[in-house]
Design a protein around this nucleic acid. Sequence first.
DNA 1: TTCTTTTGTAACTAAACTTGTTACAATTAT
DNA 2: ATAATTGTAACAAGTTTAGTTACAAAAGAA
Lengths: 149, 149
Amino acid sequence: MANSQFAMAVHVMAMLAKNCDERIKSSYIAKSVNTNAVVIRRLLSDLHEANLVVSQTGYSGGTCLTRQPADVCLLEIYEAVSHDNIFGLHAKEPDRDCEIGSTITGVLGKLQVEIDEAVKQKFASYTLQDVIDELVKCKEEKGEKILSE
Amino acid sequence: MANSQFAMAVHVMAMLAKNCDERIKSSYIAKSVNTNAVVIRRLLSDLHEANLVVSQTGYSGGTCLTRQPADVCLLEIYEAVSHDNIFGLHAKEPDRDCEIGSTITGVLGKLQVEIDEAVKQKFASYTLQDVIDELVKCKEEKGEKILSE
DNA sequence: TTCTTTTGTAACTAAACTTGTTACAATTAT
DNA sequence: ATAATTGTAACAAGTTTAGTTACAAAAGAA
C-alpha cells in the first residue's frame, strides 16, 4: 500500500487553514478524510511535533494552525509525517569481499541524498496557501463543468 | 521496510556492466548482493521486461546487458523495478459532501505528478556508466585512506 | 463539585508488501 | 543421458499501514 500520510496531512492542514480562527475537532476532520478520528489525532501529533499545529484537550477543545497558511511550506508537512528515503538501500549489507559489493552502498547513498534533495526542493516551492488557492480553482472548474453540461 | 529493489537493481546492473562480454549467473550476483538467487532472478525478470538485459537458460546460461552502460540511464532502472508514486493518495476516497474532501484529491494528484517528474528528471540525468565511474572513484578513495592511515 | 466532551496514546487487528526460501519444470551445453 | 541454469509458483516471516477499541487526562459546563 502506498503511504498516504502526506496526502492526509495536507488534507488536515487544509481543513485547519479554512477555519483559522476556530478550534477544529478531530472527529470533524475524520469525517472529511473518511477515516477514524484516532488516525487524524495521530497525524496531528506528528504535525504538533513539527510545530505546525496546537491542540487543546477537554470540552470545546480542538486544533488550529500555529501560522498563516502562506507561511507553511509543503516541505514542513512532508517532513513532519514522512521518514523514509525515496529509495532504500540494501536490506542486508552487500558482500565486502566483492569489489562492487563493498563500494556500491556509498555510491547509492550519494544518489539517495541527491534524489531526496530534489524532492525536498520541490515540496519547499509550495505553501499551504498555494494548495488552498488550487482547491478554490478546482472547485470553480467543477462548477463550470456542471454549467456547461 | 524501505523498498530496496532499486538499490539491488543498480547493483545487479553494475555487476553485469563490469562483465559486459560474459553471461553472469544469478548465483554469482546473489553472493555479491548478499541475498538469494531467486531474489536476483526476480529482479532480472523486471529488468528483462524493460529490455535492459537478456538471459539464457540451461548449461552455461546467465544474463548480460542489452546495451552499453553509457546508454542506460538510471531512470530506466528505476522505472523497471519501481511502481509507486513518491507519496500515495488517500487510502479511502474523502467525503464528497465536504468542500475540501471533494477537491483535495485533484490537487494532490497534480502535485504527485510534479514531484514524480522531478524525481524522474534527476534519475534521467545519470547513466549506469556514471555509477561505474563513481564506484571506481570510491574504490580509489578507500585505497588512499588505507595508505594514509 | 460533578458531568460531559475532547485530546493523547496504548494496544490490538487485518490487509498489504518485502524479502527470503523451497521446489520444480523448461532449457541448453557437455 | 546428465548436469547446470533460468523462470516462476508457492509459501513463510517480518514490517508497515490503516483502522479500531479503550481509557486516562484535561478542561469547560452545569
